[in-house]
């Protein structure tokens, strides 16, 4: 069973619908037991890091996420879900996050005011290294982004794909071992996004 974690951070309809397109009826849940029992975990989210972390604390999910990821369950972070698996986010005056990946999350600081924040729309992802979740997707394919902050992993080895915006090349796809995380929304990124989700569902890290 694939679990989509519901921690009150945004609308999960499109993630659920995308998986249905792939023939998978995922469970939307915040129940620790069900998350512990899941074969795969999708961790989406939109909104702000502070409220998201607060909500995870209240639901008692912080430890659970550490436990399931450390024992090897395939895990996919999406958008805000990706940001809060790093150690710290600069959002909301600075928030300590889950620390499943080492690094910080910082805000775009464009020098050119035509680069608007948030970045909203389709941008190309250059693949830095091969990864099972990117199988069958062409290098340079565009994905749909909506975000003001982006992750900066401590170790370059955690960078799988990168994207240029507002004067920086940021880590658009990150991960290690059984964790993969996208700053973009695969569930809203057309066929390429579906391919990524399908790859994740088949991934045996």
């Amino acid at each position: 069973m694939t679990a989509i974690i519901d921690y009150g951070a945004g609308n999960l309809t499109s993630v659920k619908l995308a998986l249905q397109t792939l023939g998978v009826d995922a469970l939307i849940t915040s129940d620790p037991d069900r998350i512990m029992a899941a074969e795969r975990i999708i961790f989406p989210g939109v909104g702000a890091a502070g409220a998201a972390m607060e909500s995870l604390r209240k639901l008692g999910l912080q430890e659970i996420l550490h436990t399931v990821t450390s024992r090897g369950t395939p895990f996919l972070g999406i958008c805000l879900g990706t940001q809060i698996i790093f150690q710290h986010s600069a959002e909301d005056g600075g928030v300590d996050c889950l620390g499943l990946l080492q690094g910080q999350v910082i805000r775009f600081a464009p020098a050119d005011r035509r680069d608007k924040v948030p970045q909203m729309g389709w941008n190309a992802v250059s693949f830095v290294r091969e990864h099972p979740v990117l199988k069958g997707i062409a290098d340079g394919t565009e994905f749909y982004f909506v975000h003001s902050y982006y992750p900066v992993p401590d170790d370059d080895a955690a960078i799988i794909g990168q994207t240029g915006y507002a004067g920086v090349d940021f880590a658009a796809v990150t991960g290690r071992e059984n964790i993969a995380a996208t700053q973009f929304h695969p569930e809203k990124s057309g066929r390429a996004g579906l391919q990524l989700l399908e790859n994740f569902l088949r991934w045996k890290p």
């Binding site: 680069d115 970045q119 729309g121 389709w122 941008n123 190309a124 565009e142 982004f145 240029g164 915006y165």
Partner: peptide
């Protein structure tokens, strides 16, 4: 580079 969106 962020692409320009075409929206029907």
């Amino acid at each position: 580079m962020l692409t320009k969106r075409i929206i029907p």
